[in-house]
Each structure stands twice: as structure tokens, then as C-alpha cells.
Measured scan of single mutants.
Amino acid sequence: MTEYKLVVVGAGGVGKSALTIQLIQNHFVDEYDPTIEDSYRKQVVIDGETCLLDILDTAGQEEYSAMRDQYMRTGEGFLCVFAINNTKSFEDIHHYREQIKRVKDSEDVPMVLVGNKCDLPSRTVDTKQAQDLARSYGIPFIETSAKTRQGVDDAFYTLVREIRKHKEKMSKDGKKKKKKSKTKCVIM
């Protein structure tokens, strides 16, 4: 069974824990209790493949930012979460993405942009803004509501699919490099 290491990042209060708990335990946590770091595991079937999701729910508070490099190193894919009623959390996505790329030393890291709290009427981040940002990053965008469960499975499952595509691409690139290195030079 394939294991996928997913990391949920975003500013404090955007609903990272609520999304994760909704996926794992099928219930909505409405009281806000700032996370330092929590880890969850769940076995699911995605596109006919049974897999184990190892999900790291991270601290959004700035005082825990020193811990970010460590979990970013171990993560295979990242859910970059903002709240649709919090423009600052949307603007912060850029910083999370840049930090992930720096730590992973790669421009090509599996990510999904997630606009959470889409059940709320007080939207300050337009869907088109988020779609445009995701398009500019070359990553999928999904709106979710941890409260109603809308888009929750889709967000995590899409990230797994992005990781699969990335692994497939990397193995193809690896095979191309191996083929090239088999060419021999004969000096007579």
C-alpha cells in the first residue's frame, strides 16, 4: 500500500485542523484551538488504489514558523489553505509557496490551493482571484467548507493525484537520464 505524506499549511484560523478532522473523523470542530502540530493517518481508496494518507496539520501562528522547514522537508505534497473571508490569509499563500519551493529546492512541488469556509456569506476573496492565482502557479484550486464537508475529500484526493503525477514524471525523467548515460565512448 502506497503511503502519501501530505502537509496542510496556511495562516492561523483558516480551518486547516477543521478540514483535516472532517476528512479523518467526519465531524466539524467549530471551536478554535490553535494547533502546534498534529499528525493523522487514514486509509482510503483513490482511483481504485488503496493508500495510506499521513497528514500533518501544522501551526499557522507566526511564533511556530521555525518548525516549518522541518515538516516541509518531509512532506510530499501540500494543501495551501486560505479562508475566503480573510484576504490576508490569501496573500500569505505566496509566502508559504515560496518557502516550500526553497526548502524542497524545487520549482515543481505537488500543491493544491484550497479556499476554505465557502459556506460563509462574508467572502472577501473572489473565486476568480483564487483561480487566477492557482493557474499562475500551475496547481489545482478547490473551494471547501469544513463545516458542510463540501470539497473536503476532493481537496485531499486531488493532492494525492498531483503527487502521483509528480512521481510518474520524475521516474520518466530518471529513465531518460539513465538511457543517456548508457551511451559509451570508444577510443581507438
Rank of each mutant, 00 (worst) to 15 (best):
V114Q: 02
D105E: 10
P121H: 10
G115V: 12
D69M: 04
D108S: 08
G115N: 04
D108P: 05
L120E: 14
T124H: 11
Q70W: 04
Q99P: 00
T124K: 10
P110S: 02
V81K: 00
A83E: 15
S65A: 12
E63S: 03
K117T: 14
Q70I: 06
Y64E: 01
G75T: 05
I84T: 15
Y64V: 02
Y71I: 05
E98I: 01
D105S: 07
L79C: 04
V81R: 00
Y71C: 13
D105G: 15
S106K: 07
P121Q: 13
V103Q: 05
E76A: 12
E107T: 11
D105R: 07
D119C: 06
I100T: 04
M111L: 07
C80L: 13
S122V: 09
K101N: 07
E98W: 01
S122R: 07
C118I: 10
Q70C: 11
P121E: 14
V112I: 09
G77S: 04
L120V: 12
G115R: 04
S65W: 08
R73S: 11
L113T: 03
V112F: 04
H95R: 14
D126M: 08
D108A: 06
D69I: 00
E107V: 11
I84W: 13
M67D: 05
C118W: 08
S106G: 13
F90V: 13
F82L: 10
D126Y: 08
P110Y: 01
R68H: 04
V81S: 06
K101G: 08
Q99I: 12
P121D: 13
D126H: 08
F78Q: 00
Y64S: 01
L79W: 00
M111Y: 04
S106R: 09
P121K: 14
T124G: 12
K117W: 15
D69Q: 07
R68T: 04
R123L: 11
R73H: 10
G75R: 04
Y71N: 13
I93V: 06
M67H: 06
I84N: 14
R73T: 13
A66R: 08
Q99S: 11
I100L: 09
P110L: 02
I100H: 02
G115M: 14
E98Y: 00
V114E: 00
K117M: 15
I84D: 15
K104I: 09
S65T: 09
T124Q: 12
V112Q: 01
R73P: 09
M67Y: 08
R73I: 06
K117H: 15
S106C: 14
C80Y: 08
T124E: 13
L79S: 01
V125P: 10
I100G: 01
R97P: 03
E107Q: 11
D119L: 03
G115Y: 09
T124R: 11
L79D: 00
D108M: 06
A66N: 11
K101V: 07
D105Y: 06
N116G: 09
Q70N: 15
M72P: 12
R97N: 05
F78Y: 10
A83F: 00
I100P: 00
E91G: 06
G77K: 00
E98R: 05
E107G: 10
V114I: 13
I100F: 06
D105C: 12
L120C: 11
T74M: 07
V109A: 05
S122E: 13
R73N: 10
R123I: 09
R68E: 03
R97M: 15
C118L: 09
K117N: 14
M67C: 06
N116Q: 14
L113K: 00
E63T: 04
F78D: 00
E63F: 02
V81C: 08
Y71H: 15
Q99F: 10
D108R: 07
L120H: 13
D108F: 07
R123Q: 13
M111F: 10
K117L: 15
M111N: 00
E107L: 11
G77L: 10
N116A: 15
P121N: 13
C80I: 13
V103T: 08
V112D: 00
N86L: 02
R123Y: 11
I93R: 01
V109H: 02
P121R: 09
D69L: 02
C80E: 02
V125A: 12
D126G: 09
M72Y: 04
K101L: 08
A83L: 01
V114D: 00
P110D: 01
R97F: 15
D108Y: 07
N116E: 05
S106L: 12
V125L: 11
Y96Q: 03
I84S: 15
F82Q: 03
A66C: 14
R102D: 05
L113I: 14
L120G: 14
E98N: 04
C80Q: 03
D108I: 06
T74W: 10
M72H: 05
K88M: 09
L113H: 00
K104Q: 11
K104H: 12
Q70D: 10
K101P: 02
S65D: 05
F82I: 09
R68K: 07
F78T: 02
S106A: 10
Y64K: 02
G77W: 02
F78I: 06
K101D: 04
S65K: 08
I84M: 15
E76D: 15
S89A: 08
P110E: 01
D105T: 05
Y71M: 06
K88E: 11
R73V: 07
S122A: 12
D126F: 08
K101M: 13
M111R: 01
T124V: 10
R102Y: 05
V81N: 04
M72R: 08
F82W: 07
S65H: 08
P110G: 01
E63P: 04
D69E: 12
V103W: 15
D69Y: 04
Q70H: 11
L113D: 01
R68I: 01
V125D: 12
N116W: 00
L79N: 00
E107H: 09
A83T: 08
S65Q: 11
E98V: 01
C80S: 03
V103D: 07
E98M: 03
E98C: 03
D105N: 08
F82G: 15
S106W: 12
Y64H: 04
S106T: 12
I84Q: 15
G77N: 00
R102C: 07
G115E: 05
Y64N: 04
A83R: 05
E63G: 04
R102N: 06
R97W: 15
D108L: 05
L120F: 10
V125R: 10
A66P: 12
Y96E: 02
G77I: 11
L79V: 08
L120R: 07
V109Q: 03
S65R: 09
S106Y: 12
M67R: 15
T74C: 09
T74V: 09
E76T: 14
L79H: 01
F82R: 00
Y71A: 14
F82K: 01
M72V: 04
D108N: 09
G75L: 03
C80M: 12
N116Y: 01
P110I: 03
V112H: 00
Q99G: 04
I84V: 14
V114M: 07
T74D: 14
N86W: 01
V112E: 00
V114K: 00
G115P: 06
E76I: 13
V114R: 00
L113A: 04
V125I: 10
D119N: 07
E76V: 15
G75N: 07
L113G: 01
G77Q: 00
S122I: 08
D69A: 06
M67S: 06
T74R: 13
Y64F: 05
N116I: 05
K117P: 00
V81G: 03
K88A: 14
L113F: 13
C118P: 07
M111S: 01
F82T: 15
R123C: 13
E63R: 03
Q70F: 05
R73A: 12
